[in-house]
Amino acid sequence: MPMPWRRKRHGTPLDGKPLPKALFGLAWRLSAGDQVWLCLLSISVALLDTAPIEVQRRMINHAIKESGMRSIIMLALTYAGLVLAQGLTKLLSNIYRSWVSEHGVRVLRSYINDGVDPAPGNETDASTREGTQISMIVAESEPIGAFVGESLSEPLLQAGIMVSVVSYLVYLQPVIALVLLGVYGPQVVFVPLIQRAINRRAQARIATLREASAGVLSENGTAGSTDKQEGRFERVFELNMGVYKLKYSMNFLMNLCHQLGIAVILGVGGWFVVIGKTEVGTVVAFISGLHTVKDPWDDLATWFQTMMVTRARYDLMVKTVEGRISGSGAVAPED
């Protein structure tokens, strides 16, 4: 299975075929072989992300026990080598993922541009259909195609890091590891709830922008056209502000859970050190591990947000191409 930069392209996976019904079906059709490579790279990054935590723990314990500079230097060199290997693997994965994403954007734009009627059979004028097609090519194809590159590898990478780090922490000290459940348990509840509210606003925003695109072509110069467009822009502004408020409120709650987790680890871990049930290096490893888990958890939540919004966009695109939605975003009546 050749890497992408060594593989020649002949046509596109969508030539002469309808769009897949599901977003992940699109991702698989556009990049099935590439997803295998990306998943392998993601697994490698996840495994390499855990090893430096163990090296940190050993360095702290060796320093406290005065084991000698030779062993500390060797551990420091090992740590540097692991970080370098993990960084280079992640760099390759990111570049490859970006290539897959941009290829997906290019294929989608070509597909829509090559004579696709966004609303065949609907009672909409040519200007409205043209405005919808322009909106899909310019604005809507990019986030959908970009998601193709991260559809499988991103959640596998972030979930893999979390599973490997949490498993390691449970092995070190099961009692303190229970703190992680208290940190991330509530987020499993409030993140999906807030995201659903964001999705509703994202779909309304897409429909409003389609109306604005069509209005530029069909309403320009007509009576009241300026007021109509200003009303649409105001609507988009309100929807965007609603998304920002929800998004940043969710970030605040996630960060608060993380900081409370650190406080509990320091308290419980410090008590365990005093009574001789654990080592200082273990407490340091837990704090480092919690920081290591925070980034992939945030990234996983971001991926989930992106997936939900992109799926809503893609559903609208498929329905529009199939003629079940008019240029303004209204659902066409079923037969």
Rank of each mutant, 00 (worst) to 15 (best):
S167A: 14
G289A: 01
A285R: 01
M74S: 13
G267A: 14
L217C: 02
P192M: 02
G276F: 07
V55M: 06
S164H: 03
T89A: 15
D49F: 11
A177Q: 00
W28L: 10
K17S: 09
V55D: 04
S31I: 03
P52T: 03
L180Y: 02
T208P: 08
V100H: 04
W28G: 05
G276H: 01
K277D: 08
G323E: 10
P20E: 07
W303S: 01
G25H: 01
G185N: 00
S328C: 14
V165K: 00
N240Y: 06
R57D: 10
E230Q: 12
I72H: 02
V183A: 06
V268G: 01
V179P: 01
V163C: 06
R201C: 02
G221I: 09
L316N: 15
D335H: 13
Q56P: 05
V284M: 03
Y96N: 04
R232E: 07
S288D: 07
L75N: 15
P174C: 02
W303V: 01
K245G: 12
S141P: 09
E211V: 11
V83E: 12
A214L: 06
A146P: 05
D335Y: 10
Y184V: 03
A332I: 14
R29P: 04
P192A: 08
V236Y: 06
E234V: 07
L209I: 15
N113D: 15
Y184G: 04
L92D: 06
R235H: 09
D125L: 09
V83D: 12
K90S: 13
I275M: 06
G215L: 13
Q35K: 04
S101G: 12
S164E: 03
R97I: 12
I134D: 05
D295L: 07
A119T: 12
A197D: 12
V273Y: 02
L181M: 08
R311C: 10
M136S: 14
W297T: 04
M254P: 01
Y248Q: 11
N199H: 10
R200S: 14
L253Q: 10
I43T: 10
W37G: 14
L47D: 04
E238R: 15
D114A: 03
K21E: 14
M3E: 04
F24R: 02
